[in-house]
């Protein structure tokens, strides 16, 4: 089934997204405008995307709110929004002793050996020993920042 819904951009003050989204949700439910969802992506502070078939519905939703403005730009397609929506990162099995390549951050491009795996408030953190240095250098890195090059189990 083809769905003609598009995403219209609403400009709001940075940091006020949650409040304004809560207000817009209450307004959409009470007025019955044809807006399916609202999306705020942390990469794009100050912008909310409203999923709707027509821009008229979105402009009706934000009408009268001084802090929210519907941008007259072209609507965004779902494919573009899909890239912004973050799905949970796939669980990669990393074990102690694996050789990994750092793909993000200050040590991008370096290889390291996993010394320990710890759980913190922000997710899984790896303690790595950089490979190719004269002395051992221990760094902490989130699991999303590395890619497995050589598995410990493959070696043995």
């Amino acid at each position: 089934m083809e769905r003609p819904f598009l995403f219209f951009t609403i400009k709001v003050p940075s940091g006020q997204e949650a409040n304004i989204m809560r207000f817009l949700k209450a307004r959409a439910e009470s007025s019955g405008v044809q807006v399916m969802s609202l999306v705020f992506v942390p990469k794009m502070r100050g912008y909310i995307f409203a999923e709707s078939a027509r821009s008229y519905d979105v402009s009706k939703l934000v009408r009268g709110i001084s802090r929210a403005k519907l941008l007259p730009a072209d609507p965004v397609t779902f494919q573009e929004i899909e890239n912004l929506l973050m799905k949970e990162p796939e669980k990669v099995s990393i074990e102690v002793g694996d050789v990994v390549r750092i793909i993000k951050g200050n040590f991008k491009g370096y290889q390291a050996k996993v010394a320990a795996i710890t759980e913190s408030e922000k997710g899984t953190v790896l303690i790595l020993n950089l490979v190719g240095f004269g002395k051992s250098w221990e760094i902490k890195m989130p699991v999303e920042y590395v890619k497995v090059v050589e598995s410990h189990s493959e070696e043995s």
């Binding site: 989204m21 817009l24 969802s37 929506l85």
Partner: peptide, 18 residues
């Protein structure tokens, strides 16, 4: 991080995707 408000879960593409 990030906020999604689902108003119509049956018709929304975002709701289906997530």
């Amino acid at each position: 991080e990030g906020i999604v408000v689902i108003i119509d879960p049956i018709r929304s593409q975002v709701a289906e995707y997530l």
